[in-house]
Each structure stands twice: as C-alpha cells, then as structure tokens.
Amino acid sequence: MKFIKILSLLAMPLVMAQQSTRFVYQVSLTPDSTNVEKKTELAYLDTDGKKSVFYAENSLKRDSLMERMRATKNFDRSQMQNLRSNLQFTIDKDLTNQSLIYKSRIGRDNYSYSETPVFEWKILPETVKIGDYQTQKAETKFGGRTWYAWFTQEVPLQDGPYKFSGLPGLIVKVQDEKGDYSFDLMQTKKIGEIYQPLNRGQVIALSKSKYIEMEKKMQKDPVSFMTAGRNSGLGGGGFTLDPKQMQEMQKRFEKEAKSKNNPIELK
C-alpha cells in the first residue's frame, strides 16, 4: 500500500481551543466505472473541535473568484471552467453528536438533508506510520462499500474527511476496498475561522431518501429535470430554450450523467 508523504507541518501540536484548523486531503476518485483513469483534487476539513465543514478546495477558489468579479464587475465565466470539482457538496458536522448536514446542487437548485451515520468500526491490530503520525487501521461498511481507515490518537479529534467520523482520533487516510475512492491527509494549518462555501439561492431541506430520489430523476432525464419549474419537486429553473440549445444541453447533461455512474455511496 502506497502512502503519500505528509508535509512536516503535521508535526506541530494541534490546539483546538480558540483557533480553527484546516486539514488538507488529497482525494482520488473514479466517478466513472468505464474509465479507470483516476481524478485527483484537494479538499478541506475545517474544524474548531466542536463542528467541522468538509468541502472541495475549488469551492473556496470559485467563491473567491466570484467575489472578485462582483467587485470589478468583470464577469468572465471562462475562468470558472478550471475550477470545476467532482466533489460538488458540502458536509457540516456537529462533532458533539456525530450528526451532519449534506448540501449539494441538483439541477438548478440547492438541496440538503440531515443524517447521523452509524459507523460500526472494527479496530484492527495493524499499525503504520504515515508521515509524522503513528496510525492504526480500522474497517467499516458504509454506503454499500467496505472502507479501511488509518487514524491517529496523536490528534484527539473524532473526525475525518467526507462523512467519516467516530474513531478515537483523526482519520489520516481512508479508502474503499476497491480503491475507487481515497482520502489522504497532506497538510494541516491554522486558520482564523471555519470557512463556509457560499450557497447561491435558497437551500431546500429534504429527507435523505427524497434527496436520493431527486438525484435519480436528474440522472435519468436531466433535461426535463433542468427545465421543470423551480421548487416543483423536480427542481429546475423554469426556462425555455430553442430546439438547438435544447439538443446541445441534452447531449451535455446526458454525457455528464453517464460519467457519474460510480458514486461514493452505492446505496
């Protein structure tokens, strides 16, 4: 198993009180099972020890770019193309009760659901040093996958990337059995406060089952979903396109939908 060298900043003692910390993870993922080429990007886990937010680095970059464009009134959306992410969600965790709020965009609307994941961790005897940390291996089943995590008690924080939490220490690395998804801690640094990615528009709260149903409708018929009336239960913005635009949009949406056939949670 290959581990990535963690920057030496991790050797610094972490004091959660009165200051927030940003853990930087490298995320490797295979969202398309027909294309074995992995996609890699960075994601941030910001925490003050009581709550945390997990989001893509490109979300912060996009928000910063949008703020600059608003300030200069120079809206060049071509600059946004390089900031697209495969992690199009934000996860807010309450670490006191291990509950979370998952927020993402489906079609043209923002949605969220609340969840308290149950991780039945099996702590294994295997230990290994990753970067500057001594870690121990653990195993769990979640979202239709078997996951292996390596956590360190040198950072007394029961948290980790994505929805993962509940181990007696920070999760330094976690990957699924097939290697489709992997989160590797690369760096940590102090920050003034937890960053909260911007939500453009209202966030509609749903149950998790309803959210999954909405996602499936979007995957099955993205064009109808996008052109349906806003907040009608199918999402969308209620706009009209000419036949040529509709055809182009349909091809683009269908291509994107097909390329997301291997989600991190299979069920």
Rank of each mutant, 00 (worst) to 15 (best):
K189P: 05
N231T: 02
Y148C: 10
K251A: 10
Q202K: 07
W121I: 04
K122T: 14
S112Q: 12
K2V: 07
A149K: 00
I194D: 15
F253K: 05
K93C: 01
W121S: 11
V203P: 09
V223W: 01
Y211A: 05
K129Y: 07
N231S: 00
F253C: 01
N199R: 01
A71S: 00
R252H: 14
V53M: 10
P161I: 15
G144R: 07
G144I: 01
R105S: 03
L7I: 01
I106D: 03
F119Q: 00
K39G: 05
A43I: 12
Y102M: 09
N110A: 09
G49M: 08
Y195T: 02
S104L: 06
S28A: 07
R62F: 00
A257W: 13
A228P: 12
K255P: 07
D176K: 14
P125I: 06
L167Y: 12
A228L: 08
S52P: 08
E139G: 09
R200W: 11
T90C: 04
P222G: 09
E193D: 13
Q202L: 09
K38N: 00
Q88R: 03
K178I: 10
F75R: 01
S232L: 04
Q88I: 06
D159C: 10
T240C: 08
R230Y: 08
E154A: 03
K2M: 05
L7R: 08
S99P: 04
K258L: 07
A228R: 15
P156E: 15
G143V: 10
L60V: 00
L234Q: 07
S182P: 08
K129G: 12
M16Y: 04
D221G: 09
G169P: 15
F183N: 08
G235R: 11
L60H: 01
A228V: 10
G233S: 04
L65P: 15
K39R: 14
L65D: 12
D221A: 14
L7V: 00
D180R: 13
S112H: 13
N58E: 13
F225N: 14
Q19V: 00
S165E: 00
Y25W: 00
P156D: 15
Q247K: 15
V223G: 02
K217Q: 08
Q196W: 03
T140D: 14
L10S: 05
G229D: 09
S8I: 02
L124F: 10
S8E: 12
E213Q: 15
A17V: 09
I130V: 04
